[in-house]
Design a protein around this nucleic acid. Structure first.
Lengths: 219, 219
DNA sequence: GAAATAGTGTCTGTGAGACAATATTAC
DNA sequence: GTAATATTGTCTCACAGACACTATTTC
């Protein structure tokens, strides 16, 4: 039986308010999202007196241990019938985490962003990917996936996976440096064969808008 | 006394779900929003079994008579304490309407986007203006404000008010035409003195993304 | 005629795409 | 040495900003 609720004025009310989190990273040259039991997005109910953003942070921490991630509100999904439990709108959030993020939950799994998911979660994921793609060259969203020091080739892999396009390595390096979002650490790292790459890091871990590149992404 | 609600499982639930609509246009060379009684945004409660997008359409029609407007979901505001009535999240929507839109409501008024408003509505309006500004040259959002045939000078006024920048008339015309979003109607219209201007219209009334200009807007 | 608005043409600077050439490492 | 990766440099094209100039209207 579906949940119902009524308010003190006697009118029907939402049975609950949810938050679902699209935990996104790039693994194996592809964007992937974290799912928990039954191909659903991690999420939970917003408590009374709780800000949904805090619910999202709480759920992210519970599932991944990640404490400071890039996190933003995505959109609210409240179409009637979307949740079999009843009238349960969900405020979807987007979180970007490093590729090595793991979880205790044995039912959790990383899946590609085109995987079919429970409920309307595939639609939520599609919205999330579009959002990240749109902000890629205009903000430092990628800092969520690359929080520490990284060679520009790693950054290129991340950008390519999200933009669904391949960039010329030289041009990519020139343009990412020109955004001013990244700064060299001064160190180098060798990844097997080849000349060791200089390491960079994002200048700010806080959300920054306005890199201001017009680089192409797939449309 | 604040409203409360509980669901059939015995847990507290939101007292209601609201939709508030930022009805935006450009009047007197400035972006303005429609307010109703007490400097609040028009809005209402989402009925049981209703999609919030439909609630937004319904409210827009009730207040302005506008039936087909550019309408999109903006963001959800659910910070505890934002609504004195109790736990009432609102799914804010953005609607763009023509400047001549009027309303029956005697308490309704068009106000500048920097006017102080009730509740957290100023924050909602600020989010709306940023959203429109970000999409201005990348979509046909402006079709909501300019639904029919218009001279390019009118379009320039709208774009300038939203972008908070002045464009060179010649360059503006060249670049707006180059987006492919507008098409000439073949007609001309004389506005008092001066050479009559050719009229244009947006090629599509439905949302179109991807004009793909890098024109500046104020940041 | 003057004033006002519309529209065309042109020059220039910047940045993105492409890619050649060089540098530094492992083997 | 070769293969592989990193990095620098360069050429070109597209496009935005600026602005001079022409066109068409009202007065």
């Amino acid at each position: 039986m579906a949940w119902t609720a009524a308010n003190s004025e006697g009118y029907p009310a939402p049975a609950a308010l949810r938050v679902d989190v699209v935990v996104l990273t790039v693994r194996e040259q592809a964007p992937q999202v974290l799912t928990v039991g039954g191909r659903a997005l991690p999420g939970g109910f917003v408590g009374a007196g709780e800000d949904p953003a805090d619910t999202a942070r709480r759920k992210l921490r519970e599932k991944t241990g990640v404490d400071r991630a890039y996190l933003e509100q995505l959109a609210t999904f409240a179409r009637p019938g979307r949740d079999p439990r009843g009238w349960v709108p969900t405020v979807a959030h987007l979180a970007l985490v490093p590729p090595d993020t793991e979880t205790d939950d044995p039912a959790a799994a990383w899946v590609g962003v085109d995987a079919s998911l429970a409920y309307d979660h595939h639609e939520i994921v599609a919205t999330a990917v579009e959002r990240v793609r749109g902000k890629l060259w205009w903000s430092n969203v990628a800092v969520g996936i690359l929080p520490g020091a990284f060679p520009l080739s790693d950054a290129r892999t991340v950008y390519e996976a999200i933009a669904r396009i391949t960039y010329d390595p030289a041009t990519f390096a020139r343009d990412l440096k020109a955004t001013g979002l990244v700064a060299p650490t001064g160190e180098r790292r060798s990844e097997g064969r080849g000349r060791p790459a200089a390491l960079y890091r994002f200048a700010s871990e806080r959300p920054v808008w306005g890199a201001g590149r017009r680089k192409r992404v797939a449309t």
